[in-house]
Amino acid sequence: MTEPAIRLQAVSRRFGALQAVRDVTLDVMPGERRAVLGPNGAGKTTLFNTICGDYPPTGGSIALFGTDITGLRPHQRTRLGIGRTYQTSLLFNGLTVLENLFIAVRGLRPGRFSFLRPGRGDEGVARARELADRMRLSHLLAAEVLNLSHGQRRQLEVGMALAGDPRVLMLDEPAAGLSPGDRPELLRLLRELPRSLTLILIEHDMDIALSATDVVSVMKDGVVVVEAPADRIEDHPVVQSIYLGSGH
């Protein structure tokens, strides 16, 4: 039998008195598209952060394709194949689009610690350009990130998360703050992702979440309360009461 891409066993995260994530046990299979839904404060982003290593879990264990990564630092997890975006774009504002993507590409390649400028035929630069192309940002290569529109920043976020060819891609509210016109573009991007990629998505926009994923986990108060296929989730009574009922 194949190992799950991500296996969480009784993962908890506590901030002082606040139990943000409580005993979450979860398997995401390779190639699966998983959405994590839930109201504000349900612990979705904290769960992401424990998986990526920003906040190590205070209890339980995390495995990536069968390898235990519970005690690893963020950059070590990244090198094992986790790519992620952030709810609020965490970009390098002082650098250009190309430089942002280049850093993202080099992070998982040899020469990540180099005192030499990339040459003309540098593979990393070529890959960064290709990513920009895929994210529809090629016309903005030399623009400083500080001057990008919000939609462009979200696209760049996804591009940077993809740069390391991750096996597991974790997107934290990629559609947050996007104008209605930008959303189809994002959905198209998500659909174009290779099927072999495991995708975990936090999203408030149900349309995007449900049309881009196969399985949905719903969280509330730090606990996963429902796990169901995407096409059946909207009818689920618990979901209707806690999520759709309370709105967002």
């Binding site: 990526c52 920003d54 630092r73 963020p74 950059h75 990244t78 090198r79 992620r84 952030y86 965490l90 970009l91 390098f92 504002n93 002082g94 650098l95 430089e99 280049f102 850093i103 993202a104 080099r106 992070g107 998982l108 020469g111 990540r112 610690f113 180099s114 005192f115 030499l116 400028r117 990339p118 990393g124 940077m160 740069a163 390391g164």
Partner: peptide
């Protein structure tokens, strides 16, 4: 020269956003 090398770019990345630099696989 140095600030356009991978080292220099990552250094500026750390200035703007150390968390993201780590998430991209660098030892900050």
């Amino acid at each position: 020269y140095l600030v356009k090398t991978p080292f220099g770019l990552v250094l500026q990345g750390i200035r703007d956003n150390p968390r993201r630099v780590a998430a991209l696989g660098y030892a900050v």
